[in-house]
Design a binder for these strands. Structure first.
Lengths: 198, 198, 198, 198
DNA sequence: AATGAATGAGGGTTCATTCAT
DNA sequence: TATGAATGAACCCTCATTCAT
């Protein structure tokens, strides 16, 4: 009953620290500056221990990005504005914590060489927020809070993109950064005269 | 006075080809994958010829970004919508041509290591567009086409950011990508009820 | 008395497959290219199972060569020429089958490092044939078919060596390769005027 | 008039020491045990200096074997026996000096992996001797000293092969090793009753 | 000024061997 | 006994940089 598999079990602790060290280094050094030596030493394991799990540096980086999990802000309120603001606040917070822009830099830079990285980054980082924002906006449409036939995808581009653009502008983020942004977007979705039916 | 320095003068032709090769390679390979050997070979000069001009790879990359010049779309029309659409179209085109996202990746990734790169990138790439968009929007305010006291910086974030976000989403850009975007933004700037006076 | 040792006995099946895999790999890859991982995987056992039996890679290779057994051609005829031809044919065949020249390469190359390998190779591969050829030739001497006082060892060198030399020349082996060789050697052993008594 | 090419000239001294260190190490360690680090250190140059000249370890080993030059014994006498004896003596001497059997081991062992090595070894080591022996024997045929229609290639196999076989037997080489060997071979080529015409 | 050669330091990967189950 | 996991030490190769012509 429940025989354990033969041989020494693979340390789950090592599994974890390797991936976490990798994520940390991808974010801080970037994929190409990050060395397997450094990963091993930060993780406190030997290089072969890494190669036992991953075939190559690329494979490891890929796995690390796949391991990345964005904890999503709970959608507690039931009003569009509050929910959007909360999500944007959470997005900004998470991105800052995870050195998100640096990691984004890596996957963008490696797009030609290792397109899988950008794909995974999308899956793990961008997509979840897009999905969430979409849910909020579509729910608002059903409620009649914003007009139907609106270009929701573009609205999402504007919301998330505003973060990227502000970061890239070098200007600081005001404390209440999300509010005016969300207000602007919502106003365009509720103002009369827009939409495809016009 | 005004004597030219002794010895053979540096070839200005070399100056140019070196910077251009560097820009090309930063965009296509990224800073760390780009090797001095490759730059020298693409520029058709020897490595010491490069080191005569720049102290290090970092110095060269910095100079290359400083050399980067975005040709701006002429602002021909005199109506907000058309001008914005034209600028966004031009932005998207220029970014695509220059492998702008890949270069952006590089400067983001190197932000910790070499913050000057991101600063220069801002100066040369992001700022000019922001300035232009600002001019257009402020002109419109003067004309009374959009309301005053609006958060123009955030509007600009939304416009440029929408490009980044769309690129990062992996979704293709529709042929007439700028139109709905500009419409959405303009509507939020013209709709009643917004602005700080409310 | 005669108690079997305590614990689970070592699998003799493992003994065999390990040695055979080792021989195969020495022949096909050579000692240094052959890895313990590969041996283990080809033998279908784990590496510690190998190290339980042999102290080191060198020890294993040595044991493998000691395990090597050349099946000798039966000496059926009772005439020198036919017997020699048959032995040479068998020698060539066996060497070809066993990748003999490759294995010979290994033991030669490792001579400085691990002289035992060459010694074992001699014992298992070269010596048996030499012994057999010697028996045949001495028998022929007793029969009066070839002259006494001949330098039989040199004759053996010429017979076996002709194989090595032909292989190393890169020229193909004719179908009836042994015949002219054996004829040449026999003629020199039967022709008048030679021998130490002259 | 005779401008020197631009740039720092490549050190011919380095060219030489690299190849010689490589030959020495191939002979003493074998191809796979020999490391680029070791070659560099024995040659007193850095690794990139080697890689500037050769693309890979394999390329270097190949070049080293191509660099190998066997100085051939002058053929002074004009009698078959003396010439053959001199050549065999020289062959044995040269092989001993150059760790010929060890190097032969390497090329044999690497035959599967890097067949070029064996080919070059043939070209540089085996072929020159074969050619020389052939000239001597054919000259003797023209002179009527040995019979025509004899299988000269097999005779050469026997001569050179006797060296290999004796080496592999582990038996020492007598001081006058070549004499009985050459005598045996010559007797078979001069004795009546052989050759294809019979 | 410009070149081709040379270098110290490090990168990714693999190996023979040992550990822990 | 036998297994799969773990390791220190190397290995081949490349890079940014400097030297010598």
């Amino acid at each position: 009953m429940g025989k354990s598999p033969p041989g020494r079990p693979r340390s789950p602790e090592s599994d974890r620290v390797i991936l976490e060290a990798t994520l940390r280094l991808i974010a801080s050094e970037g994929y190409s500056r990050m060395s397997m030596d450094r990963i091993a030493s930060e993780a406190g394991v030997s290089k072969p221990t890494i190669y036992l799990r991953y075939d190559s540096k690329e494979d490891l980086a890929t796995a690390a990005l796949a391991y990345l999990r964005i904890e999503q802000a709970p959608r507690v309120h039931n009003d569009v504005r509050g929910d959007l603001i909360e999500q944007m606040r959470h997005f900004r917070h998470t991105f800052g914590e995870l050195s998100g822009m640096s990691m984004l830099g890596t996957v963008l830079m490696e797009e030609r060489h290792t397109p899988k990285l950008l794909k995974l980054w999308r899956e793990r980082t961008s997509k979840p927020y897009r999905r969430l924002l979409k849910e909020i906006l579509e729910h608002a449409q059903e409620q009649g809070d914003i007009r139907v036939n609106e270009d929701i995808d573009t609205a999402i581009d504007m919301l998330l993109g505003a973060y990227y653009a502000r970061y890239l502008s070098g200007e600081p983020f005001p404390v209440n950064w999300p509010e005016p942004l969300v207000d602007l977007v919502l106003r365009s979705l509720t103002a009369p005269g827009g939409g495809e039916e016009s």
